[in-house]
Write a protein that binds this DNA or RNA. Sequence first.
DNA 1: TCCACGATCGGCT
DNA 2: GCCGATCGTGGAG
Length: 194
Amino acid sequence: MKKLPRSFYSRNTITIAKALLGKTIVRRIGRIFISGMIVETEAYLHDDPASHSFRGVTERTKVMFGEAGHLYIYFTYGMHYCANVVTNKEGIGEAVLIRAVEPIEGIKVMMERRSKKNEVLQNNLTNGPAKFAQAFGLTTEHSGIDLTADEIFVVEGRTISRSEIITGTRIGISSAQDELLRFYLKDTPWVSKK
DNA sequence: TCCACGATCGGCT
DNA sequence: GCCGATCGTGGAG
């Protein structure tokens, strides 16, 4: 399957947040493939007080201001990582947070990383941004990786119709709480819990 | 230097 | 439903 090209990522961030739904994100580790269908995203914009880019370029956030189509991963709450896709033009500072995926390949590896039993049956493996990052083994060491290269990338998945996309408010933020910048697929048990 | 807080999760009541 | 874990980041002083 074909990787999404740079041009996919260097567009309007909200468009990309919706367009990523149904796509498959893949991590390759040697011959092992871990993949999942993206079912929930959030957009973080340049003039958005909830965005890490809001106060300008810092050591942590500089990759958000870099070229589109790279990963921005940050560490939070002293123990969790969250992964974003950098979007829009270089210098703008926007990204899409991947909040949840439906596991496809590498489920055994994901379960080992999450070190929990029956996670798949309970849809608990990747239904949250830090759970997804943990299952895929993503940390700040992977921040800045180019998604058009071979280690982590996104490919076409299921075709999603407009009516399948639910829009809502973002989760876990303390400013801009009313902005409708969260998008998820209807009728899937793999979205995060509120 | 210091320190409050966080794009969360899981366990406990 | 609530609360504690746990530490890097960056704004304040």
